[in-house]
Computed example of a mutant assay.
Amino acid sequence: MSPVTDLIVGTKTDYHAIAVMWALKQLGRSPLLWDGLSIDDGHMHLAIDGGRSSLALNGHQVETLHSLWFRRQIPYKEFANVTPEAHKFLKRELYEADRVLCAFLEKISKFTVCGSPSKVALSKVHQLQVARDVGFRVPKTLITNQFDAVRSFVTGTRSIVKHFAPHYFMRRDHSQLRVVGTSEVGELMDIDPRSVEIAPAIYQERVDKSYEVRLTVVGDKLFPAKIFSDDGDAFLDWRSELGKAHCKVAPCKLGPQVEQSALRLMRRLNLEYGCIDLAVSKLDEIYFLEVNPGGQFLFIEDLIPEYPILHAFCSLLAQGRRDFALNDTWRSKLTMRAFERSDDFYEWEQVYARKDDDHFITYIG
Score class of each variant (00 low, 15 high):
residue 5 T to L: 08
residue 6 D to N: 13
residue 16 H to Y: 00
residue 20 V to C: 09
residue 21 M to Q: 07
residue 25 K to V: 10
residue 25 K to I: 07
residue 26 Q to R: 11
residue 28 G to L: 12
residue 32 L to W: 05
residue 44 M to Q: 09
residue 45 H to L: 11
residue 53 S to Q: 11
residue 56 A to I: 04
residue 61 Q to D: 07
residue 64 T to D: 01
residue 67 S to Y: 02
residue 67 S to V: 05
residue 67 S to H: 00
residue 86 A to T: 11
residue 120 V to H: 14
residue 121 A to W: 06
residue 123 S to W: 06
residue 128 L to Q: 14
residue 135 G to K: 07
residue 137 R to P: 01
residue 140 K to D: 11
residue 141 T to G: 05
residue 162 K to R: 13
residue 164 F to C: 00
residue 169 F to R: 02
residue 173 D to M: 07
residue 176 Q to I: 09
residue 181 G to A: 13
residue 189 M to V: 02
residue 196 V to E: 02
residue 204 Q to S: 01
residue 209 K to W: 10
residue 217 V to Q: 02
residue 219 G to C: 02
residue 223 F to N: 03
residue 224 P to F: 09
residue 228 F to L: 07
residue 232 G to C: 07
residue 233 D to R: 11
residue 233 D to H: 14
residue 234 A to V: 00
residue 240 S to D: 14
residue 244 K to Q: 13
residue 244 K to W: 02
residue 245 A to V: 13
residue 252 C to E: 12
residue 252 C to Q: 08
residue 257 Q to I: 12
residue 259 E to M: 12
residue 259 E to G: 07
residue 281 S to C: 06
residue 282 K to H: 03
residue 284 D to P: 04
residue 285 E to T: 13
residue 286 I to T: 14
residue 287 Y to T: 04
residue 304 I to W: 05
residue 314 C to E: 03
residue 314 C to V: 15
residue 314 C to Q: 00
residue 323 D to Y: 09
residue 324 F to K: 04
residue 328 D to G: 00
residue 336 M to N: 10
residue 340 E to P: 03
residue 346 Y to H: 10
residue 347 E to G: 00
residue 351 V to W: 12
residue 355 K to T: 08
